[in-house]
Write a protein that binds this DNA or RNA. Sequence first.
DNA 1: CTGAGTGCAAAGGCTTTGCAAACCA
DNA 2: TGGTTTGCAAAGCCTTTGCACTCAG
Lengths: 134, 134
Amino acid sequence: MINRKREKVSRNTVSREALLLHLKQARKPETLEEIHRRVSKKMPSLAFSTVYRIIRSFEEQGIVDRVDWRDRGSRYEIVGPHHHHLVCESCGAMKDIEDNDISLNLKKIAAQTGFVLKDHIIELTGLCENCYKE
Amino acid sequence: MINRKREKVSRNTVSREALLLHLKQARKPETLEEIHRRVSKKMPSLAFSTVYRIIRSFEEQGIVDRVDWRDRGSRYEIVGPHHHHLVCESCGAMKDIEDNDISLNLKKIAAQTGFVLKDHIIELTGLCENCYKE
DNA sequence: CTGAGTGCAAAGGCTTTGCAAACCA
DNA sequence: TGGTTTGCAAAGCCTTTGCACTCAG
């Protein structure tokens, strides 16, 4: 299995910079539509397809991660330390949680079935403090 | 197929029964398209939209669970004891793993952030024994 | 200059829905 | 007969892509 990654060189364009900056400042994973809506406020000519292509290339280059959340669409965030997300099902607030030894545990459990674990995605939903009170 | 049994035999029931039976015998969560393809072999007139609507109603009634898997589409399986899935990224094989105390751990971790955990979905991908050897 | 990057519009690929015919009680 | 369920086709939606024009290098 060949593992060639991030070979393609991208030009440094205004759109790219704007998107990167936006992603760095984003507080939570956003959908393409959200990203486009927000960034195009400062850059009205920005086309959705451009956002689509740039984010996709960020993903291929390992700059962003895609977070697929049931019923919440594909979302993107800047790559950082391995972590998971907790989503409030009431207000949509998202919080990161560190992986701690979750991964390790899963790996052990998977091993018992003969699988070698390569990747895992954990989706947690619940109620945040505020919504729980109400 | 002529109705020889005394069970409810509305046309609906026939489709429903066929789908329910199929789901019970399925070895792994299947997409609507797979379910339709398979069940319609015995029931050629079965429309995709019928499968769509029945499975959806099964879901609403808590008879099946939807398993959303990144890049593998929404899949459905009969509801059973809480468990998670392990998917071989090479051959697509799927294996169930018991929840053990995974849920409990996640709940604790979530609590530390102030969230009350309501639900969680864990997607595990890796290589099954066979594919790992090769 | 030259090819990567962009905007626009249209094409795809599922998922859903409208509706009349088929059915069952 | 009244209320569902079904099959078919079309509508929606979001994701991708083709193409001509623009721009970074």
